[in-house]
Amino acid sequence: MPPREPELPEGTDQIVAGASAEGNEGSGGFVARASNGGARETTDRLVTQARDQIATLRDQAGEKIRAYADDGKGKASGLLEELGGVLTDAARSVDTRLGEQYGEYAHRAAGAVSNLAGRVREKNVDDFVDDAKEFVRKSPVVAIGIAAVAGFALVRLLRTGLDDVSRVGRPRDED
């Protein structure tokens, strides 16, 4: 790098003709200078554009999240319906093996799971969000406990998955 001339400001390698704001008023260089609030108008316009872009991205993200939530809701209700069917079959088996007295409990459990599946299917995502907000307002301590347990379970799941990925290709240790 060539030696710098002493009159240049720090970080400048060379003088560009017309780029100085002092004394070179119509020299054709690029100088950011406001005239009659032009910079303010430009700044306002850029801020407005940024806000519009943020609002658009937020709306798009909300739509994607809602679509994923609807898909998850459909899968959950399907799984609950299948579980209800399995419990109904198990209740019939209990009826024949142990008697209807014990089978009644299994039938109630199967009915409860089937009812839950129907409620999940009928509700929309906004209803679930509202229910969750109401639950947190009514029982914040329980909500924090549930969040802590869910977080712990998620971390354990991720660690197990990462441990499994790191073991791929390595010989298994014999205990």
Rank of each mutant, 00 (worst) to 15 (best):
Y68P: 09
R97P: 09
V86K: 06
R92Q: 10
A90P: 01
L79S: 11
G72D: 11
G84C: 02
A76M: 08
T96R: 10
D95V: 03
A91G: 11
L80D: 09
G84Y: 03
G72H: 06
D89N: 15
S93V: 08
K73N: 14
D70K: 10
V86Q: 05
I65A: 08
A91Y: 09
A67D: 13
V94H: 05
D71S: 14
D71W: 11
D89Q: 15
D71T: 15
G78T: 14
I65R: 12
A91C: 09
V94C: 09
V94R: 12
A67R: 13
V86T: 10
K75D: 07
G74W: 00
R92V: 02
E100C: 02
G72Q: 09
E100H: 07
G74P: 14
G84F: 04
E82P: 02
E82V: 03
G72C: 03
A67V: 14
A91N: 03
E82H: 06
L98I: 05
T88P: 08
E81D: 13
G99R: 05
E81C: 11
K73R: 13
A90M: 14
V86R: 06
L79W: 06
G84H: 02
Y68H: 13
R66E: 10
R66L: 13
D89K: 14
E81M: 13
G72K: 12
